[in-house]
């Protein structure tokens, strides 16, 4: 049985047409859905920042954001100032939360000045300083927001990931892991920045010791945990000068 579909010419034609059809279909879909996706991502950033400073709808064991409908209004209500730190320069910007941390990290690598967004929020008379962090997990990017008080004591943390293993590394966005960071100190009394290390077997599973600069790791998620430690150390250390100035 000779098939016309076996000839080289047909094969080439088929490949070209298929690539063209599939390519334009996906391109069309991607560009027409882009505004909706961007909007979702924008709202999510606001929800993340609010979550870190404790504005969320957590129940007993699950992490829940404020709903997408009210996120914009809540963001305006709680976030008093959005700062951008560039070297020694501090400016205010209404869109600081849209700064792409990934791009800024690349800028810093190229020797350019990295813009550091910092969100100053107020809730029940307390001031929160929320900073974004970003790093590498086992498979892909991980990122998050950490809220601190003026002594760099963690008040709340939110972590997220692109593709960590479900049930293992993906659990960094579970309440039981994120809540461990609350109350942890990032800096010693003397003002030395220590960061927080995600550590196996630190004999403090319920995390009672808040000044050991450690939280208990997730079993089976060593590399993701190391990624979390690394991004906290690397990205939050950049904010140390700001906090030291704050105290003066």
């Amino acid at each position: 049985m000779s098939k016309r579909t076996d000839s080289n010419g047909y094969t080439m034609m088929f490949a070209v047409i298929m690539v063209f059809v599939v390519g334009s279909l996906l391109a069309f879909l991607a560009s027409s859905l882009k505004p909706a996706i961007k909007e979702n991502e924008r709202i999510e950033k606001q929800q993340n920042i609010l979550y870190a400073m404790g504005v969320n709808e957590n129940d007993a064991s699950n992490a829940n954001f404020v709903s997408t409908k009210v996120a914009g209004a809540e963001f305006k209500k709680y976030i008093k100032k959005q700062l951008v730190l560039e070297g020694n320069k501090i400016s205010e910007s209404q869109d600081a939360y849209l700064i792409d941390v990934k791009k800024q990290q690349a800028n810093a690598k190229d020797g350019k000045v990295r813009k550091l967004p910092l969100f100053v929020g107020e809730k029940e008379g307390k001031t929160f300083y929320v900073a974004p962090i970003r790093g590498k997990g086992l498979w892909d990017a991980i990122w998050g927001y950490v809220s601190m008080d003026e002594n760099m004591v963690v008040q709340g943390a939110y972590f997220d990931h692109k593709g960590e293993t479900p049930g293992l590394g993906a659990n960094i966005k579970q309440r039981y892991f994120m809540d461990d960071f609350i109350g942890e100190h990032l800096m010693t009394e003397a003002g030395v920045f220590k960061g927080i290390t995600v550590k196996k077997g630190n004999n403090d599973a319920v995390n009672e010791d808040k000044t050991d600069y450690e939280v208990d790791a997730i079993a089976g998620a060593t590399i993701t945990g190391d990624g979390v430690s690394a991004m906290i150390k690397k990205d939050l250390s950049l904010y140390v000068p700001y906090f030291k100035n704050l105290k003066k």
């Binding site: 991607a30 996706i37 979702n40 593709g163």
Partner: peptide, 22 residues
Amino acid sequence: VIIVDLVLKAFAYELSKTLSVF
């Protein structure tokens, strides 16, 4: 898979975040 992923991202963002790993 990509079509499903894009549509979910636009209209069911929460769900898409759970599924993106898959």
